[in-house]
C-alpha cells in the first residue's frame, strides 16, 4: 500500500496541483491576452468599483432578483458552493497534510461540521442531478459532459465521506478520494468548472458595463 498511497499522495498530487495552478494561470493569461488582442473594449469599460459592486450583489444570497425568485435553488447553491470550497480547504486532515509537507497550517473545521458540509455538497450534487433530469429548461441544455462534470465534483466528496467514516475498505476509498480530488483539481481549468476562474471576471465586466456605462443595476 505504501507505494500506491505515496504515489497518489506525492507525485500525482504534485502533477494535479501543477496542472491546476498552471492551467488556471494559463486560462487566465490566455483570456487576458486574447482580450487585449481582440476584445480590447473589455478593458476600456472595466471599472473596479462597479465590478466589485456587482460581485457583491451576486455573492450575497437573495441580494439579486433571480435568487429571490428561486429560494430553494438559492439556498442549495449557496450552501453547496460554500461547503464545496470551505470543507476541503479547512478540513483537519487536509491541513495536516499541508503541515506535514510544507509546514504550513491554518484554522480547521471541527470534523463533525466538515462531515455535514460534505453531505451538503453531495446533496447539492443530487439536487443538480435532479434538476438536469427533470427540469425541462435545464434538461434541454444538458449534455453528457454535464453529468461527467457533476460526477467529477461529487466523487471527492463521496469518497472522502466514505473514507472518513471508515466503513468498508478504508484505504481503497482513501486512495480513490485522493485520486478523485486530483481529477477535480485538474478538471477545474480545463472544463466548465472553469467558471470558478472566469465568473469573477464575467460578473465584474457586466457589472462595469451596467454600472459605469449604463448607469443601471445588474442584479
Amino acid at each position: 500500500m505504501h507505494g500506491l498511497y505515496n504515489f497518489v499522495r506525492g507525485p500525482l498530487a504534485w502533477v494535479a496541483f501543477i496542472l491546476f495552478v498552471g492551467g488556471t494561470l494559463y486560462r487566465l493569461i490566455a483570456m487576458l491576452v486574447i482580450a487585449r488582442k481582440k476584445d480590447n473594449v473589455v478593458f476600456d469599460y472595466f471599472s473596479l468599483f462597479y465590478g466589485l459592486r456587482s460581485i457583491f450583489h451576486w455573492i450575497i444570497p437573495f441580494a439579486n432578483r433571480n435568487s429571490r425568485q428561486r429560494p430553494i435553488f438559492t439556498i442549495v447553491t449557496f450552501a453547496f458552493h460554500i461547503c464545496l470550497l470551505a470543507a476541503p480547504i479547512l478540513l483537519l486532515a487536509h491541513v495536516l497534510l499541508w503541515d506535514e509537507s510544507f509546514g504550513i497550517s491554518w484554522w480547521t473545521l471541527p470534523e463533525g461540521v466538515a462531515d455535514i458540509m460534505t453531505l451538503i455538497v453531495i446533496g447539492g450534487c443530487i439536487y443538480f442531478l435532479w434538476r438536469r433530469l427533470t427540469q425541462p429548461e435545464v434538461k434541454f441544455v444538458t449534455f453528457a459532459s454535464d453529468f461527467v462534470i457533476l460526477a467529477i465534483v461529487a466523487a471527492p466528496f463521496i469518497t472522502g465521506f466514505l473514507a472518513y467514516h471508515q466503513w468498508l475498505g478504508y484505504k481503497f476509498w482513501l486512495i480513490l478520494h485522493i485520486l478523485a480530488g486530483e481529477v477535480m483539481l485538474v478538471a477545474i481549468p480545463f472544463t466548465r468548472l472553469a467558471h470558478m476562474i472566469y465568473s469573477p471576471f464575467t460578473r465584474a465586466y457586466m457589472g462595469s458595463e451596467f454600472g459605469s456605462v449604463r448607469h443601471a443595476r445588474d442584479w
Binding site: 505504501h2 495536516l96 503541515d99 467514516h165 471508515q166 484505504k171 482513501l174
Partner: peptide, 29 residues
C-alpha cells in the same frame, strides 16, 4: 501532534511498513 505524526510516519515511510494514513492509526472502530 506533529511530533507523533512525524515520528511514526517517517519511520513507517522509511521502512515501508506500518500505517501512514489517518484512518489506519485513528480508526473509528
Amino acid at each position: 501532534m506533529k511530533a507523533y505524526h512525524d515520528l511514526c510516519k517517517s519511520c513507517h515511510q522509511t521502512k515501508k511498513v506500518g500505517p501512514i494514513t489517518c484512518g489506519e492509526c485513528h480508526p473509528r472502530k
